[in-house]
Design a protein around this nucleic acid. Sequence first.
DNA 1: CGCGACGTTGATTTGCCTCAACGATTGTGG
DNA 2: CCACAATCGTTGAGGCAAATCAACGTCGCG
Lengths: 195, 195
Amino acid sequence: MFEAINQNVCRYAAFSSEELATFNQLLAHKSIAKKQFLLHEGDVCRFEAYIVKGCIKSYFIDSNGFEVILTFGIEDWWVSDIDSFCTQQPSRMFIETIEDSELLLLTHQTKEQLLTKIPKFERVFRLMVQRHLASYQERLFADHAKTAQERYEYFLAKYPYISQRIPQHLIAAYLGISPEFLSKIRKRMFTNRSK
Amino acid sequence: MFEAINQNVCRYAAFSSEELATFNQLLAHKSIAKKQFLLHEGDVCRFEAYIVKGCIKSYFIDSNGFEVILTFGIEDWWVSDIDSFCTQQPSRMFIETIEDSELLLLTHQTKEQLLTKIPKFERVFRLMVQRHLASYQERLFADHAKTAQERYEYFLAKYPYISQRIPQHLIAAYLGISPEFLSKIRKRMFTNRSK
DNA sequence: CGCGACGTTGATTTGCCTCAACGATTGTGG
DNA sequence: CCACAATCGTTGAGGCAAATCAACGTCGCG
């Protein structure tokens, strides 16, 4: 049950089995069906969740009612609204399951306990956040410098597992294009072999 | 000399004056003229820099040779390529002064020393990175959900100090639009009073 | 003075959106 | 187990936001 998450954190620092046991005791397990909200706009984000199994999206709703997808999460990823979680201010985003999912949760309180008991976790979370930051920087660059088709190809190459289990219109919402246009891009890519 | 930076880090955790003295001893001071590179694509980023005075941009160059600006930094901001700095891998970005600047630098080595001597700094940097992350999330949302004019107005409102001291075409490069189009937006905004 | 950096303006083009209509597939209640 | 509704993807016509290209004005500065 905790194997995967323990391997996950051990990528960032070395932990003894006692430390890992302490860590694991602070985690809450949660099963949740698909199409359920883990977080709703206006609510305070009370968790950081490690995905044991399942598929989850986090997104904003724009002024026209369209989803702007920030991230997809699958097995071995973390999801949260870090900003709301840390400040304990109401969130502006939604986090919603796409498939039935199993999670391991840290709350604000258990995370603080963890950081107090095992300060090395400060480093783990710092490094995790840094990697997230780097990927946002890369995405910003892609959004500004590349065409929709290039971004789609990049997405397919980078997240082959995700692109196979997610409906196409959600990928469009992630890329920032309309579902119709993504359909046209795909047609272009798969019929006309010219890049 | 160290007043501003000490206040900066004290926003995230409490430090004694001895701790701050230790911190300050690990910082290197650097003066640098405008239009100089602090980091060049292909080089490893060896610093995290606190800006005592000046103005700095970090950016990528896209395949057409255009700048895609990630961030502007002015007084009381930090600049670095966190990804390259942490992994000590070659960077893909440029960091360049826009004005004559004064910096306080941490190197990979001095940062590790700092974290070892005063582990509370783990928390400081974690919280700093988290705030950066939140601002990238917001920017991604704005890029996908708002028009160029809305993004420009938002930029003016959020960074009034920056927008006054930076040439207009750099703001365009930050917003992800052409300088010509920004000029047309401004004309629209300032002649026709309709939003 | 003359050159380079910066901003503006207009004409034209284009990448992507919107709207509308239509299959295909899934799933769900009767 | 079928009927019907959602959900999802495709296609085409038309439109708009923003890019591109080209020309020109202005300022600061070596």
